[in-house]
Nucleic acid binder design. Structure first.
Length: 258
DNA sequence: TCAGTTGTTTATAT
DNA sequence: AATATAAACAACTG
């Protein structure tokens, strides 16, 4: 599920259950740990204390009083806390044993993974050239990051180097609320449309973050996309389905004309 | 058996 | 230099 709202939910989970706790022991599958050996990872973290986690885009950065752990959730990642879910799941790929429980990283498809960083410089190197976080980005910065780009608005919004955190669902939802066709060229958007898009993107994030996911509400198109014959919740037109930026895209041809 | 999946990277083409 | 596209990654579900 992981787009910005989901990872924000994971940040809250990590903060609630892991912040201020000592790592007594840990485990990580060798194929999910992308830049270190499990032995070195476990040794470096043992007896370290987790501090407040932070999120940038779809990354969760979990510092200790020494090194940091970076988590990316791909399309099927999740976190769980052993007190709420006692049994380990077969797709749990890493876990951290604390004094009062175990926090676990689950990832069925193994897209994404776990990274290790000795210090802030290595954290930055792992994250790569990410754009500014999409949540609470000012309209000026939003417009500034998008302007001058030549491709479609959907591709630009999903490009993590432009803005960090938006994904297929949040982008489809934002464009639908702003009544902008996903295939429109960025350069073709008027100032008024850019303003509306910024407002609606922030609305989608604001309404999704508390529940830690893009809500499947009937009044949003995310709720419609899984149904066999999806219709626009606003005007009841049959939704169009196409591919933009390599992702399945739903839009309303009436509300979002091309 | 086949298509599809909320993400990213890489190779290749434009 | 930017963009676009497809494939690959991996493991399911319907």
């Amino acid at each position: 599920m992981p787009e910005l709202p989901d990872v924000e939910g994971y940040r809250r989970i990590w903060n609630r259950f892991a912040s201020g706790k000592i790592v007594r022991d840990s485990h990580v599958d060798s194929d999910i740990l992308r830049n270190a050996s499990p032995r070195a990872f476990v040794t470096a973290l043992r007896d370290r204390c987790f501090e407040e986690p932070r999120r940038h885009g779809k990354w969760l950065i979990c510092p200790t009083d020494g090194p940091s752990v970076l988590l990316h959730f791909g399309m099927t990642g999740d976190l769980s806390w052993s007190v709420e879910e006692p049994e380990r799941h077969r797709h749990d790929r890493a876990w951290f044993i604390l004094d009062d429980g175990e926090i676990r990283y689950r990832n069925m498809r193994k897209l994404g993974g776990v990274w290790f960083a000795h210090d802030e410089r290595e954290v930055t190197a792992v994250l790569g050239p990410l754009g500014p976080d999409a949540w609470k980005l000012s309209r000026q910065d939003f417009v500034g990051r998008l302007s001058g780009r030549r491709g479609s608005i959907k591709s630009a919004l999903m490009n993590q180097k432009v803005l960090a955190g938006l994904g297929n669902l949040t982008v489809d939802e934002s464009l639908w609320f702003a009544r902008i066709n996903p295939t429109r060229a960025v350069a073709s958007l008027t100032d008024a449309e850019m303003k509306k898009l910024h407002t609606q993107t922030q609305k989608v994030l604001r309404d999704s973050i508390p529940t830690g996911r893009v809500p499947g509400k009937a009044s949003w198109i995310t709720g419609a996309r899984s149904s066999p014959d999806p219709i626009c919740p606003r005007c009841k037109t049959k939704l169009s389905r196409t591919t933009v930026g390599g992702r399945t895209t739903y839009f309303c041809s009436k509300c979002q004309p091309g």
